[in-house]
Each structure stands twice: as structure tokens, then as C-alpha cells.
Design a protein around this nucleic acid. Structure first.
Length: 383
RNA sequence: GCGGAGAUGGCGGAGUGGUCAAUCGCAACAGACUGUAAAUCUGUCGCCCUUCGGGCUUCGCAGGUUCAAAUCCUGCUCUCCGCA
């Protein structure tokens, strides 16, 4: 009798697995990290040097941020790894208890291109702070991120510029793929003693510039190596909108749907909405914070109750330049429908004045508003 | 009163015969920003015409020298510093 029962349950299990073969086509809704779950899609405010400019981690949390991004290259230079060893990681250092994703320094290969040299072994930078030489290899970058205490570790890649010749894109991709392989190997070696629950995640990065076949090759190779998530890198480095969308769409089609897809450094609000429709899950971008500091304010056109179907149009939002003279006497809040701290308390005229007189509070209030805008938007997309 | 220095576009301040509508900084006005070398960067900034370009009026005021003056000369007005 017992044997029969076992047989039945065994058969049921098999059937169940046939219905859901590893759930490959089910879109991921939640990303599990060792420091808690992240609802997808997610937007990660950027704390390059361990701080989202103008905000405390507590304020960030109140704005609804579930995960933030930090940077290997910059943290390695300052404060340096000895500090993270002493203070026990970035989370403790900056008092942020949620997950942290760290970028590998691959973007600095692009943005500091005049100060670095790429070889098969790694990238040699001459520091923009003191000119000192910094040598990063795929292995070293993993070690640094482990020391920082990152929850999502990015592999070292080369983010090629745009436009990029076919020949260079191929060469660059070959190197990036080799580095990806080495990264995975090194990561496994270094985390072999970690318990499953406490192990950080490792993400690979798809490159290949604007060439679809290279992107395809890149994605397929990374899947073969096997990562906890996949990023689309090298997007928004100056290419036209259609090119970006084409690449993101292609990558999202190829990459597994039960793993998070992270479009790096992306994007404008409408671009994010579009990418989510194609299957992208994670984003980070300097736009809301940097533009806030420069006085550009994001405003929703729709009334409250924003729903994803209302976001079809590119015009669901607009921007306003608060430094413009026309806001000098404007007693309205930045956005009359916005529930953020800034809009609940302050007028455009006041924020305009703070900017004109270079009071840092202006940038702070604008940052709060713009991040609220982005995080509110992403929340609507989670529904 | 005597001696010295100076007056330049919204402000500060270059320029001391043609290349000056006048360097530069600030202010003003606008724009850009996509894994943050970014509280940054770019443009405009005497007036008029549609851009290239062209025209007009400017360097305290009034004359003068010169082909040509913000720049040289004369007078005037004002400001600052020192001495009485």
C-alpha cells in the first residue's frame, strides 16, 4: 500500500515537472537576494561612492528604494578595502540594510577611456584622483566586490563606445566573454564555502555594441557559462533610440525569463516602460539624481492612479527646468499630484530661489522629488 | 588747496593708435545630461536686419590731432589715495 502511494506521488511530481519544466517561460516577479527580496521591475538609485547624492539611506528607503547600486572602481580607490574590512562591509559602513548591487568598473573603462589601457589580463587605470596606477582584473574585481559585501556582483566587462567598428566590437566582445568565464570560475572558487543563503549573486553582462549577431553570440555564451542574472551593457552610450530598443528587445528574447534581466545605465522614464514591456527587470540611471541637481524636474502628466496601460504614450510625463525665470513667482508645488515630501511642503518659487542662490537644499528637494517620480513609476509597473 | 592715481558694456576688470562691439570672471537668459571624473558642461549675452553676413551707436563729458582713436593732445566734470 505504501509503495503504491509512493508511486502515485512520484508520478504526480513528474507530471508537475512536465507542466512546469524548470519554469523557463514564467516571467520572474521577485529577485531573491541574501539581504531580502526585490520586487521586479526594480529601479536602483545610484550610490557610486556609498551615498546617493543628497540623501540618507533612511530617506531612500522611505522613497521606496529596495535596492541600490554602488561602484567597485570608486570604492576601491576611496575609502579602500582596508576600511571595508575594518567596518565590516559597505552595508554597515553606510547604514543601508537592503541589497546592494555593485558595478564592476566596466563603465569606467568607457567613461575614463583616456585614462586606462586594456590588456588581455585586465584594465590599467591611472587614477583621476591622484594619478596612481590601478590595475583591475576580472578576478580582482570579484574579490573587491566580495570584500565590499555586495549582494549582486557584476563581472568586469568592456563597455565599448558608439559608434564602434565591427572589428573592434568583435575584439572587445571576445575579451569580455573570456573575462566572464574567468569571473565565474573565480567567483565559484571564492564562494565555495558560502552557505547558499548567504551567497551573493553573480551577473554576466551582454555586450556586442549595435551588432545583433554579436549580441546573440554574447548572450548565448553567457547562458552557457551560467549566471544568476544577465545584464545588457553598452547601451545608451550615444546611439539612436531605435538602436537601443532593438538591442534590448533582442537580448530579452534570448535571455532566460526566469532570471533577472538588468539593463545597465538605463534610462529615461519612457525608455524604462518600453524596456519592461520587452522583458527587462532591473534598471539604474543617473538621470533622476543628476538632472535633479541640475534643476530638471520630472512631472507626471496623468492624474493619480497611473496604470501601465496609460503609459503607452511617450507623453505620460514632462520635464520642467526649475531654474527658468518663469518659476520665480510660481506658488504651485513642482507637481500638484505628487505625494513626495518636496511637493507636500514647498513651492516652485522657493525651489527656484534655492537654485538661483545655490543653496544645496534646492538640489536635495529636487532629488527627493525625481527619485520619488522614478520609484513611483516603477511601482506602477510592478502591478 | 597741493601732490598722485583713475573714470571701459548690469557688476568686477583687461585692453594704451588699426587685427575692438572690445580678452576674462561674475550676474542674467536658455540648452544638454542615460552601469556619476558631473552642485557639471555648452550656447547667448550693445542695438537693428532673416542665419552666413551686413548696418548702426558705444569705452566719464566736450573739442582736437590722424587715412584710422577706448588708446594721443586740450579743457571740463567726477572718484579714490596721500599731505595740509
Amino acid at each position: 500500500m505504501e509503495i503504491v502511494w509512493k508511486l502515485i506521488t512520484w508520478k504526480l511530481k513528474i507530471k508537475k515537472n512536465m507542466f512546469f519544466p524548470k519554469q523557463k517561460n514564467v516571467k520572474l516577479k521577485i529577485l531573491k537576494t541574501r539581504r531580502g527580496n526585490v520586487r521586479l521591475p526594480a529601479f536602483m538609485p545610484i550610490a557610486t561612492r556609498g551615498a546617493v547624492k543628497n540623501l540618507t539611506p533612511e530617506e531612500l528607503k522611505n522613497l521606496g528604494a529596495e535596492i541600490i547600486l554602488s561602484n567597485t572602481y570608486h570604492l576601491f580607490q576611496k575609502p579602500g578595502l582596508d576600511v571595508f574590512k575594518k567596518i565590516k562591509g559597505l552595508h554597515n559602513f553606510m547604514k543601508w540594510s537592503g541589497p546592494i548591487l555593485t558595478d564592476s568598473g566596466g563603465y569606467q573603462v568607457f567613461s575614463l577611456s583616456h585614462k586606462r589601457k586594456i590588456t588581455e589580463k585586465g584594465v590599467k587605470f591611472s587614477s583621476e584622483i591622484d594619478g596612481k596606477e590601478i590595475f583591475l582584473t576580472p578576478e580582482k574585481v570579484i574579490d573587491i566586490q566580495l570584500a565590499i559585501g555586495s549582494d549582486i556582483i557584476m563581472v568586469l566587462d568592456e563597455c565599448p563606445p558608439y559608434p564602434c567598428s565591427r572589428k573592434y566590437a568583435e575584439k572587445s566582445l571576445d575579451l569580455t566573454l573570456k573575462w566572464a568565464e574567468r569571473s565565474k570560475k573565480h567567483f565559484n572558487l571564492k564562494t565555495i564555502h558560502y552557505k547558499l543563503k548567504t551567497k551573493p549573486l553573480l551577473f554576466g553582462i551582454v555586450q556586442g555594441s549595435t551588432y545583433p549577431d554579436l549580441r546573440k553570440k554574447s548572450a548565448e555564451k553567457l547562458i552557457k557559462i551560467g549566471f544568476d542574472g544577465y545584464a545588457v551593457g553598452g547601451v545608451s552610450v550615444g546611439e539612436p533610440r531605435e538602436e537601443k530598443i532593438k538591442i534590448i528587445k533582442l537580448c530579452a528574447q534570448i535571455l532566460p525569463k526566469n532570471k533577472p534581466i538588468y539593463v545597465m545605465g538605463y534610462g529615461r522614464p519612457d525608455e524604462i516602460v518600453e524596456a519592461v514591456k520587452f522583458g527587462a527587470d532591473m534598471f539604474d540611471c543617473v538621470i533622476p539624481t543628476r538632472e535633479a541637481r541640475h534643476g530638471r524636474i520630472y512631472i507626471l502628466n496623468e492624474k493619480r492612479r497611473l496604470k501601465i496601460k496609460n503609459l503607452n504614450s511617450k507623453n505620460f510625463y514632462k520635464t520642467l527646468q526649475i531654474t527658468n525665470n518663469k518659476y520665480r513667482l510660481d506658488a504651485k508645488p513642482l507637481d500638484k499630484n505628487c505625494q513626495c515630501y518636496t511637493c507636500q511642503n514647498y513651492s516652485r518659487a522657493y525651489i527656484h530661489h534655492l537654485f538661483k542662490t545655490k543653496e544645496p537644499l534646492g538640489q536635495r528637494l529636487a532629488t527627493i522629488h525625481n527619485l520619488h517620480f522614478y520609484l513611483y513609476l516603477i511601482k506602477q509597473l510592478q502591478k
